[in-house]
Design a protein around this nucleic acid. Structure first.
Lengths: 130, 130, 130, 130
DNA sequence: GTGGTCTAGACCACC
DNA sequence: GTGGTCTAGACCACG
């Protein structure tokens, strides 16, 4: 149950925001979506670090912050697991998506593209990302 | 001729993003909103620096980057002015929008929201951003 | 004889090199080509400045430097004229052109374009510039 | 791991063009020449700054601009590396070359050289620049 | 007057 | 360790 999740994580090296933040938000989204369920164990720091070619300290930092936020729980000597009662309704998941959509909308406005074009392009992108 | 725009800029000292970025975004927004029109001259580096109690180099960096992006033009010895709309083709503008859409799509997938929900939410966000 | 030459000058506002340098090199080329012949009078500082929408001091600086170089001569109270013995052979004119060609060649190499493509493009540009 | 590239850089203190530009051109040339290959890491800002007795910000500015141009990539906490050749399309590369060719053409016209001569000279320059 | 460059030295975030 | 940001203050080129 540890090797199946390593593939769930990915980082965008070209992104402006730090790796540990990318990891944190990914875990949160996966929990919100139910892909990661309460009680699931997460891949070890070393596994993730190796799979993503990242410094272990970076992964550790993400896990620590997630523990402080109550998203994860430390299993003394056995890694981390998803904390209880983190299941989120559709509304909450939509709220998590909003920032990214708002950013896209803001940029679209500045580029002066009309809504039809924007939506069409987004549909296309969504299809590719399936 | 100095009082016309100095008040347009403001910075949030406690903000996570750097001052020069805040300035850049502001100029872009002012241009997009039509407050700054092509041909308008901007307050000098020194004026802005003094008005905001910031180092001139910081303002200079913002102006510089805005020039590189084609938003501003240097007026040799007379400061900077808003560039004539070198309106890019629609295809190019769509390409510029793609990264933001792709990011949103990736996050939406991880949240396991269905396409209809995602698109509906995006339409709503777009409407709010008008 | 003063109004016919004003049109000979032009400046590229987007160019990285200063206006007075652009003017200097243009006068040199026009002299080398024989368009401006020894004894020809040049348009006054004021005329050029107005025609190009440039600060008169800038034009004046160019004229002064050209006088120092011996390209122009001051006609006490009657403007400047092209100095004697400045007619140049074809070889010298080619030498004047070289820097621009070398720059283009260097950039072309960095862009990894093959010679045939480069030359074809240049022929096209030459035709447009006729 | 520090001695491999420090010696590659050098600056001409008496040069008309700024230090950061000299560094930029050098890196580009080293990349073009194959001395620096995609994936190679560059000496750190501090190393270069010390080796050249220059302010770190100056080196940083050069690296920064090279990143914006896509020549270098940031390696989060591990310095900069030469970017993977994101080879642009031929059309785009030709567009990038045009300005230099147009400038050369304009100058050639003012020198009143005939097209055959110009092209012959350009071929020669191209051969020398190989 | 304008912006451009550079310095010396500080502090911060990230890995 | 890495690069990023900012400051204070200097000097220069251009118009």
């Amino acid at each position: 149950m540890a090797e199946h999740t390593a593939l769930l994580f990915s980082i965008a090296t070209g992104s402006p925001d730090p790796i540990y933040r990318q990891l944190i938000e990914q875990v949160k989204r996966l929990c919100a979506a139910g892909v990661l369920k309460p009680g699931d164990t997460l891949p070890s720091v070393r596994e993730v670090a190796q799979a993503l070619a990242v410094n272990p300290m970076t992964v550790s930092k993400a896990y620590n912050l997630l523990e402080m936020e109550g998203v994860l729980e430390r299993l003394r000597g056995q890694g981390m697991q998803v904390a209880q009662r983190r299941r989120q309704g559709k509304g909450e998941r939509e709220a998590l998506l909003r920032p990214a959509l708002e950013r896209a909308a803001r940029e679209a406005r500045q580029l002066e593209l009309d809504d039809a074009t924007i939506l069409e392009l987004f549909k296309q992108v969504l299809k590719e990302a399936t």
